[in-house]
Design a protein around this nucleic acid. Sequence first.
DNA 1: TTGTAAATGTTATATTATTACATAATGTTA
DNA 2: TAACATTATGTAATAATATAACATTTACAA
Lengths: 132, 132
Amino acid sequence: MQKEHNLSKNQKIIFDLIDKSRGPMKAYSILFNVQKKGIKAPLQVYRALDKLVEIGKIHKIESRNAFIACQNSSCQVSKATVFSICESCENVSEISNSKLSKYLSNFSDSSGMKYSKYNLEFFGLCKKCKSK
Amino acid sequence: MQKEHNLSKNQKIIFDLIDKSRGPMKAYSILFNVQKKGIKAPLQVYRALDKLVEIGKIHKIESRNAFIACQNSSCQVSKATVFSICESCENVSEISNSKLSKYLSNFSDSSGMKYSKYNLEFFGLCKKCKSK
DNA sequence: TTGTAAATGTTATATTATTACATAATGTTA
DNA sequence: TAACATTATGTAATAATATAACATTTACAA
């Protein structure tokens, strides 16, 4: 069960923007878009982003320095993320594949390290771009 | 079989530095370290890094903006990388697990997208840090 | 109502990465 | 070898991403 998080004002403004966006958004593009709502400084954006990532409402696409709303409606898996990224149009979507998730969550290697978190990014060409 | 790449002067200087380093190195730390060898500007570093990544001699740790020498001695798999990252001491190592690699290389989902590349980063605490 | 944690506001600055332009070295092919 | 193309280099400026430090306010639990 997902814990209910009451978003603060800035967190809500920024989450709503990302959630409505078609694709991943970058921090300074977010900043630009929320300036009319009174959020004026990068730090205000980054603080909200940090919190939203922490509670799993959004994810960071590490290879793109961009943020996307969680697409697993009740995402308790903010610590286990898999994305599909088109290298041509930069479309990103979150993959939810329970077999893959299980496989990765249970993965362990000879180092004796137990992993509490992972992030996987797949790259390729999406259908549209492939056929061009 | 890996294609033989003759590294250029700057590429060699930078690869040697990363290869000798204990852990991942960041671009500006690399720059600082090679200034005595005549590499003065960030762009010189980034250009060498780009090339070294492209040919698989090094990998970028996306979540850390840092670079590490490929640890699979004859790495033809620069397009299929898996890392283990300790969130406490920031130690990073490359995981080579053929079962996992196969599983990920063959992964496909309902989108019809064929993936040509992936990067997976596992996070946790290493043995040392766990016992502190 | 008092204490504490979380969130906000603001300025400055640190860190990471690229654009633009000029030149040189290397490799290929006629 | 001359001519051409490709790759690499040098340099300056600047763009893009992210954090430090400090002051204040809001939310909420004891």
